[in-house]
């Protein structure tokens, strides 16, 4: 009986949380004063999509993927080339991005994930570098180091998403859908298998699960999310060039995952937001802001491995408990008097 009311309460709490989050997301453009701030929020939204995907392979399955910048670039270039050279609609570009994600997931996942060990980290980092090199040198298609300009905005039945605010709402819809899918998958039997692979792959295999194909599935999901985010990015920025897709970008995505807490969908969003917004705030330190940012994150990794948000929640819970205890004690004492 008690259990039932508990799940009911949880459901209620979740609905309230989701409604509040939705309200905040809807109101945000009115609170933010400049276009630049909304642009930063748009970046948060796009990066959230990458981190939601990365969570599956690195957060849940525990396999290091350092090639998200490459996936991001592939998605961006696929849709940008299609749109600028062939006049293909950005919406079809999105489908292209998904196809790219499938190809990368299978093509890179198969050689590196059927083996035990750190091979995925090494191949993905190399993959990302190759994508960047090809983008910089295949001038006839990618425009070389100057990149691709004048990538059209998304438009729907004549309505063009050409301002930061319009794009913000469009991307918010994408992210909401991305969160829905990520949550459904992470909270299902698949999420459970991914987590168990992280903890002990031998035992999973002995349960009749083809562990290589499960890891490849997690990696493919990551690649698809990464490529879709890249496509959104291309139509959001309007221009792309290879210098934006360095290993530093991949590192940033993993930092987002880490700051948010491995394996948690809510944490993913939190991490993407913090890691995108914090450097903007730290810009007051001018030349030193990157250094300060990296040091903060490194110290955070050593001391709050569960993610900043969860570390914060833990601290608050402890404080509340202490306060309650004190109140309880003073209350009792008061009663005794």
């Amino acid at each position: 009986m008690e259990k039932k009311s508990n799940t009911m309460n949880n459901k209620k709490r979740n609905i309230i949380l989701i409604c509040t989050a939705a309200a905040v997301v809807l109101i945000l453009p009115w609170i933010l004063t400049t276009d630049y701030q909304i642009m930063v929020m748009n970046k948060v939204l796009i990066y959230t999509v990458v981190v939601l995907g990365l969570n599956f392979i690195t957060g849940l399955t525990g396999q290091m993927n350092l090639g998200t910048a490459g996936m991001f670039a592939l998605g961006a270039y696929a849709t940008a080339v299609a749109a600028t050279s062939y006049g293909i609609s950005p919406w079809i570009g999105l489908v292209l991005a998904i196809v790219m994600g499938l190809l990368v997931g299978r093509g890179l996942g198969y050689p590196s994930l059927r083996l035990k060990g750190v091979y995925l980290a090494l191949t993905t980092i190399g993959f990302s570098e190759v994508v960047r090199l090809v983008a910089a040198n295949w001038v006839s298609v990618t425009g070389g180091t100057t990149g691709i300009r004048n990538i059209p905005y998304y438009s729907l039945a004549g309505y063009v998403f050409d301002t930061q605010t319009k794009m913000y709402y469009l991307f918010a819809v994408f992210v909401a859908f991305g969160i829905f899918c990520a949550y459904r998958l992470a909270d299902s039997k698949w999420g459970r298998i991914f987590k168990s692979l992280r903890d002990n792959a031998d035992a999973v295999e002995m349960s009749g699960v083809n562990i290589a194909s499960c890891k490849i599935l997690a990696f493919t999901v990551c690649a698809i999310y990464g490529c879709i985010a890249g496509a959104l990015y291309a139509h959001f920025m309007g221009y792309i060039n290879p210098s934006s897709f360095t290993i530093d970008l991949s590192t940033n995505f993993v930092i987002m995952l880490m700051v948010g807490g491995l394996g948690s969908v809510v944490g993913n969003i939190f991490g993407a937001a913090v890691v995108t917004i914090l450097p903007e705030i730290l810009r007051v330190f001018e030349n030193y802001y990157q250094l300060i940012f990296c040091t903060i994150v490194l110290v955070g990794a050593i001391f709050f491995p569960e993610g900043w948000m969860f570390a914060g929640i833990k601290v608050i819970r402890k404080m509340v408990k202490k306060l309650r205890k004190r109140e309880h004690i003073t209350g009792e004492m008061g009663g005794g008097e």
Partner: peptide, 16 residues
């Protein structure tokens, strides 16, 4: 075993 998962989840993995 899978130390970061609950006992029930541990057993459920077997049924995947």
């Amino acid at each position: 075993v899978f130390p970061t998962m609950t006992l029930l989840e541990n057993v459920m993995v077997g049924g995947h």
